[in-house]
Design a binder for these strands. Sequence first.
DNA 1: AGCCGTTTCGG
DNA 2: CGAAACGGC
Length: 486
Amino acid sequence: MTASPTLVWFRLDLRVSDNPALHAAAERGAPVVALFLLDDAEAGAWGFGGAQRWWLHGSLASLAGSLGERGVELVLRRGRAAEILPALAGEIGAGAVYWNRCYEPWRIARDRRLKQALAETGVEVESFNAALLHEPWAVQTLQGGSYGVFTPFWRALQQRAVAAPSPAPSAMTGLRGVESEVLADWGLLPAKPDWAGGLRRTWTPGEKAAEGRLGAFLQQAVEGYAEERDRPGLDSTSRLSPHLHFGEIGPRQVWAATRRFLERQGSAPGKAGKSAWKFLAELAWREFSYHLLFHHPALPEQPWRPQFAAFPWSDDEAAFAAWCHGRTGYPVVDAGMRQLWATGWLHNRVRMIVASFLVKDLLIPWQRGEAWFWDTLVDADLASNAASWQWVSGCGADAAPYFRIFNPVLQGEKFDPGGDYVRRWLPELAALPDSHLHRPWEAPAELLRRSGIVLGRDYPLPLVDHRRARERALAAFEEIRKEAAT
DNA sequence: AGCCGTTTCGG
DNA sequence: CGAAACGGC
């Protein structure tokens, strides 16, 4: 008989299905105590951002409900893991402590020490994989090294079998009377100015909502994904990113459901099959980011290509503020930054456009953009955020070459041809016809007047001239290229 | 997962 | 003549 309770420590795995730590606890048979520890005080610069705190509140409420249905209370505590976990384990007389692994460098270091400390007290400690298709160390080159290029990584990933998701435990035995803090006391929701209205209208945190999103995506949108995923005015992406980030759904579940979709397509998958594989490749980009972060822990702070340390960045605070608040004068950039502010999320195509604009048109360090995204995105993920900013900036692994500079006008006209996206987020430009919507400064005075727009009053003039900014960026890049060669 | 200036192709 | 292909950034 193993009567001594099992402590399950929830982190970025806020779900009951396909949760190996919870599953193992249920199998063990002893009473289960579920803990969520608000540990962001020890996260340094990478504690939960504002938008993520809003999400976390909803996700914890949802998890508490799902666990409650199964007879287990979610215990909430705050503080340092190295103190809280041993104390709680002692308090309940735990015989085992289980958790699912996280891969942020600060969590890896902390959890490794904690695991050892707990084991020394005689408790069984075990960690599991809930967050990735494969552990970052398990995908290896033929020489046993790590990958720096996506395509061979993706090929290697496809060679490996993905573990089947495990079902949610049906009923468990809980343990009554364990002291818990109250979620509402954590102040995760905004108080004075309530800026979360757009988030509430856009999102429903929690495991059930995540399953619903995946189901709806596979039923309606995945078929056209390959062709429509780049159109920010359409609702053609899965929008699973925040759910995946908080572990309300796991990549194995997404993988399995998409493979079932592919099987239903039969022998002639065609367009739908191509789209579904494209979607799986996006999941693989997420894996690739974790792989990079694991093997290069400085990824969130330092350029992966060291020669970029000498890049002549600008410290134009006014330009940075204009970018943050969507006042650059380039409609697709500004629409994106306002979507981000209002909803905590940004369409992937527009992420690339606004990031390219910050780094190449304004020459502002990618770390500034990374930090802004960290605070405003509900899906801010250390691995994906860092890897993607470095990708756009040209200093990352398998990055777009630096000289690949997005033209915000052409990108807007190509991917938002009907102007739906820009008009939704910049209503002040809504009356402009498509012909000038993405370049209002070129509109004839008469057209602006008819559209009721005074540039510089209702909408900014361009912060920089893209053509000149592009030349400036190429010249700056030339400087570090020269330096690297000598 | 670009852009742009230039050259070549084809009706 | 515009479209497509190409090569440098």
